[in-house]
Design a binder for these strands. Sequence first.
DNA 1: CAAAATGATTCTGC
DNA 2: GCAGAATCATTTTG
Length: 337
Amino acid sequence: MEDHGHMMLGHIGLSREDLGDPDNMRKLHNLGEPQQDIGNILQQIMTITEESLDEAQARKHALNCHRMKPALFSVLCEIKERSALSLRGVQEEDGPDPQIMRLDNMLLAEGVTGLERGGDSAAAATVAVTAGVSPNDGSSLEHTEYREKLAHIRHMYHTELEKYEQACTEFTDHVMNLLREQSRTRPVSPKEIERMVGIIHRKFSSIQMQLKQSTCEAVMILRSRFLDARRKRRNFSKQAADVLNEYFYTHLANPYPSEEAKEELAKKCSITVSQVANWFGNKRIRYKKNVAKLHDEANLYTRMPAASVSSEASQANSPVTPKSGGCPAPCYTPDGS
DNA sequence: CAAAATGATTCTGC
DNA sequence: GCAGAATCATTTTG
């Protein structure tokens, strides 16, 4: 306290001795003839902590009512403003955090934030489904379930956010009141209060970011749980399987359909081109893995003489040298020759 | 209900 | 970007 006070006085180029001199003070503040010695006041402020609580309380009140108080207060605020104490917090003047922006955008895209589509989103979903294009598969049920879960996440997010915001304003109010209260006895400028509010808001927004982060994670998990195509897999129809198998076994020497061929197969089987590609990818590797098991199937679709593949099949089943020593099983060669 | 089959995804190497 | 391989998640089968 002593050193601090001394430092502050030193800032404006005065020693305590200078202040202690009534003539100097009079010159400095251009006052008429102060009955009270300002040096004396400062001395009282400096030693206030050495007094007992009651004494200090009384002293504070007395000083507070002193007619020089406003002037002295503003001077002290100014000194503090110039000192290193108030330099902190200035550097954190960045705009909207890119991380927060990213999370906000994602939450908006997933429908967690943004316009509320009613508390009964499940009902809205069923309406959308019944009005939808095809009333075929059971995906509508999954869809409503997804909407329900998403609505739940949204509800949680908003209640949590509300709690945080309430806590933030409460805490800010509390701190502001405290600082205003304190500003009656120690130099706390409005600017400083403003800065403190900024710091509090930053802290709370970093907490909010954690909420947003975990909400994003929850939505991602939900998405992977419901929107992952693997989870709503349907086997192709027998007819489609026949078409695909027929192509595969009649092109066994080179079972790599061109883009056009894939498109045609896709149309024939009423599936997508990528599904055709998936099918051929799976088929090639599984055929290769187990030629013997598929032997009968091959005959079924190509009506080829069994002798032509049986030797290869037995090779494929043999446990020796799966990778070295030449191609073990398939009729085709991966290089397309 | 466990195993097999199957469609889709992910990872790696080219 | 594609093919192969491994793997996942679901459906079908015995």
